[in-house]
Design a binder for these strands. Sequence first.
DNA 1: CGTCTTTGACCTGCGC
DNA 2: GCGCAGGTCAAAGACG
Length: 392
Amino acid sequence: MEKKIKEDHHQEQQKEELNSTKNMETTISSSTHMMNLGTISDHHHQIEVAGSNMNLSSIFDTPISSPFPYSYFEDHSSNNPNSFLDLLRQDQHQFASSSNSSSFSFDAFPLQNNNNNTNLFFTDLPLSQPSTTKAESSEVVSTTPTSPNSTSFSSSSNEAANDTTNKEVIVKDQEDVDQQEQKSTKPQLKAKTKQQKKAREARFAFLTKSDIDNLDDGYRWRKYGQKAVKNSPYPRSYYRCTTVGCGVKKRVERSSDDPSIVMTTYEDQHTHPFPMTPRGHIGMLTSPNLEHGATTASSSSFSIPRPRYLLSQHHQPYNMYNNSLSMVNRSSSDGTFVNLGPSSFSRFGYDMSQASTSTTSTIRDHGLLQDILPSQIRSDTINTRTNEQDTQ
DNA sequence: CGTCTTTGACCTGCGC
DNA sequence: GCGCAGGTCAAAGACG
């Protein structure tokens, strides 16, 4: 009986997602008019990058007063030199070489360690999908990228500049994570066995602040199971990539303590490039407009264009920095943000660092973050920084 | 009709 | 060995 109620609650919540979409648009629209990056809005954009040994279990096994063991929701001022926005101002090389005293350093970026299990990212997405109305096709809704790697939303302004919400990147050093696991009361031997087992699986867990459970990352997933999670009113859903021969799986579950947080765990690597037919938007995949960092996506449909670097760099060797997110949001000609897929999440192995050297500067120099964050945000950040420098 | 979701059953691993 | 929880399978139904 109780289970039934919980499930009903969950379904009801999903039904509300569409409605919340409109609210989100309002929020975003208002925020885009605020140029002060220091403004803290209701929507915190954060990214948590945990050690590679972090996995879903370790996260939720942590005693909780807060949903997650780390301060995912710390309120960081934009003045913080280590703010996420500052990271956006750095190019890819800076990410790689950063070794300052900041609480986060891309030296510790877990993706550099491939003997891993789960890399944990935390992103705060718009709490709802873009303002797609029910009048629009259901496909539009399903395609609307709302995943960490593919956040798309409508905006009434092409200038859309700033999402003034805070964006932080917190890197949990791998050793810290290991130490935490070692502190476990479990026998060391067993822990070692567990770690060995974990090491066999490449996992990326994304904490996403979103009302939407099944975040659309551009790939096609088939749900093959759902299980109730112990001590959680929310079920865990199991998805598998529908591409033949691709064994990538993902698990999606919502935090019981903070229902606004969705944890998506990707497992394994895609054995294919970006989906050729992401929910029926193949046309966008090869849109030449991508060359200019924009797509021709109509205002009535969200598509998942193929990143430019994917068009030309199909067989680049695997690059850890590009391993995270190949998605880049772009603003279309009509002001609609279009997401690219999460190839990085899925660890395609495309070398973004070698791609796009002549155009789309917003893509070029932001390494991992360029995939995680909408290019719009990055661009805005850069612009804002320029403004700040001008005023100094 | 094809695709996707739902859901109960089954399998597996782990802890006791 | 047993029980529990997580993970997967597969048939049935929903949906466009």
